[in-house]
Structure formats: C-alpha cells, structure tokens
Amino acid sequence: MGNKSLSLFGNIRALENKISEFLDQLSESNIMFRAGVTAFLEGGGANSETFKKKLELVSAMESRADALRRDIETEMFQEALIPDFRADILSLLENLDEIVNHLEETLINFSIENPEFPKEFNADIQKLLESVANCVEALVVSARAFFRDVGSVRDNSHKVMLYEKEADGIVLPLKSKIFAGAMPLDRKAQLRNFIDSIDHIADNAEDVVDMLAIVTIRRAA
C-alpha cells in the first residue's frame, strides 16, 4: 500500500505536468502563429525562411499537443480519475487541441496558397493578429486557473470575450475595404477566407471559454 500510494503521487505529478505542458503547447503555438503570419506579410510570403521555421515549429507543437492529449485521456480513463469532471476536462482538452490544429491548418494554407495581401491591409491584419493572440492567451490563463485556482477563472475569461469582440470589430471593416477595392473577385474571396480563418481562432476560443465558465460554476459550487 505504501509503495502504491507513493507511485500514486508520482503519477499525479506526471499527469499535472502533462496538462501543464499541453497548455504550454497551445500558448507557444499561439505566439509562433502570430510571428509566422507577420513574417509572411512582411517578408516574402510563403518562401520567407522565418515563416517556414514558424510553420515547422507550430506543426511540431500540434503533434506534441495531440500526443499529450491522448496520454492524458488514456490515463484519466484507465485510472478512472476525477469522475465528476472527467468528461468536462476531456472535452475542454479536445476543444483546446482544436485551436492548435486550427493554428497549424491556417499556416499550412498560407504556405500552400501563398495569398498576396496588398500592403495597405497590413496594419489592420496586424491588429487582428494581436487581438486573436491576446484572446487565445487569456483562454490559456483561464484554463490553467480551472485546474488549480478555480476562483480566478473569471478574471481572465471575460478578457477572452473582450478580445474576440475586438477581433470582430477589426474583421468587418477590413473585409469591406477588401471588397471595395479593385482586385479581381477571386482574390478578394481568397483574402476574405484567410481573414475569416484567423478570426475563427478567436471565435473558437470564445466557445471554449463559454464551456469553461459553466464547468467552473459547477466546480466552485
């Protein structure tokens, strides 16, 4: 029994570390995504070395996040851990993983389609990238709080909504500007898709934080 309880606490530390590392992957891929898109816009599109490097890093993080999520899920099911919140935690991790996937997918699309963004939109896109990055980071902080300090989840979750709204506020006029220009329609549609894809990250983050808010109420009760 003594050894079992020792190994029990050893396993717990390992699992705590895995959850923490998973959130690190999301947070870091969020930073790399922003840096990748910035490099794309400012330094020669998909052929930019910095862009390629960032894409590589985000892909590696996406794979690591997937592996960690699978590990955590398996362990939680096998050991029947946290019966009251297991389902919620697993769906939280899956939704967070979706965000990492989406970050990677968007960068891959940039790499494949290599869209040409007129310089005049750069400032707006940078603003959009900043709001989206802040949004995801606030989500990561909220998610970390859920695991350890449930009382402070709300302190950050409202920021997610604020940044999501901010992103929406940038996207609408930006898309109008694009469609008001003289570019061919197919290019306009392509640029709109990329902008929607970036904005979608913030939308996803907001959906996750909504779910987190409900689980938090249950946990704090």
Partner: peptide, 16 residues
C-alpha cells in the same frame, strides 16, 4: 480554495 490544489492532486487526495 486557499490551498489551490491541482484538480488531479485534489482528486487523488480525496480518493486516498
């Protein structure tokens, strides 16, 4: 709430 235990640790301690 004051101790701020990780949910995994809290679960293990409660189980024990």
């Amino acid at each position: 709430n004051r101790m701020q235990l990780h949910i995994v640790r809290l679960d293990a301690m409660t189980r024990l």
